[in-house]
Design a protein around this nucleic acid. Sequence first.
DNA 1: GTTTTTATTGCAAATGATTTGCAATAATTT
DNA 2: AAATTATTGCAAATCATTTGCAATAAAAAC
Lengths: 145, 145
Amino acid sequence: MGALLEEATEILRSRGGRMTNQRKRILESLELLGSHPSADEIFAFVSQSDPTLNLSTVYRTLRWLEQEGLVSARHFHFDEDRRTDRFDAASPIDHHHFICTECKSVIEFDNRLIGEVKNQFSRQTNCWVQSVSVVLYGLCPNCQK
Amino acid sequence: MGALLEEATEILRSRGGRMTNQRKRILESLELLGSHPSADEIFAFVSQSDPTLNLSTVYRTLRWLEQEGLVSARHFHFDEDRRTDRFDAASPIDHHHFICTECKSVIEFDNRLIGEVKNQFSRQTNCWVQSVSVVLYGLCPNCQK
DNA sequence: GTTTTTATTGCAAATGATTTGCAATAATTT
DNA sequence: AAATTATTGCAAATCATTTGCAATAAAAAC
Ligand SMILES: [Mn+2]
Ligand SMILES: [Mn+2]
Ligand SMILES: [Zn+2]
Ligand SMILES: [Zn+2]
């Protein structure tokens, strides 16, 4: 079903890897949980159905997915929660984030102007820009009162 | 001399704080080192002239400066070096960063279009955007070939 | 200038997130 | 079914940063 699971399985195969139960469950949870879960959150979720799962397996799987480009890890630099990686299952590139500093909700967005920013910078500096990360911090409508 | 030191001293005064030797040196080094040093780098630098300085003093000073808005802490999410905070002495707002993933050099820039991105997002979502962080990753001219 | 007050420091131990070594386990191959 | 070896669970390690506390030193009061 999940596109992530399928793609991961294929890559796994092509490398002599093994599709284990825990990997399946972790991949699955990445799609179910959706909005940028931390390793711990994934662990808590999968543990419900498989209490023997170990947190380091979660990390190992996530890091592997990251290397394969199927997932990206980001710090959403909150007031507190600064050093917790959050994992983004959806197309790692081509989208950006707004974070409500109050309720911690995340809104994904894109804007053609960002490509323009990138181009202008490249032109002016002769740097080759590979990726762009834009994060807006503020208050969502709910939290503005 | 340093604008940072002056501003910090003033704030300190207004709070019944004390301008110690170690604080002076740390502030000083922030201006001297310039480009986004880590706590460790600041510590190493100041230690040369004051070998009794302690790393936790560096952290405490930096965190205090951050709270006062004189400095901002950021993770520049390199391939490795992911969980090290780097401290930005220059006007925390109103500038953005390009990072060469090869030589780790940082170029600061700004672009009026970024304000536009922010405005468009606000208009479309009714979110109130307080700050924007843009980071470009890529290769500087030197590291390209 | 000396004494008093208390903000700040150094040090060592704690923290939190993540990683790692290794023997046990379980997917694949044969 | 047996052999092979990628992957796991577990415990210990790591890394950056924070914290408690007694000792130190700014600034205030004498
Ligand atoms: Mn996302
Ligand atoms: Mn900067
Ligand atoms: Zn909110
Ligand atoms: Zn470079």
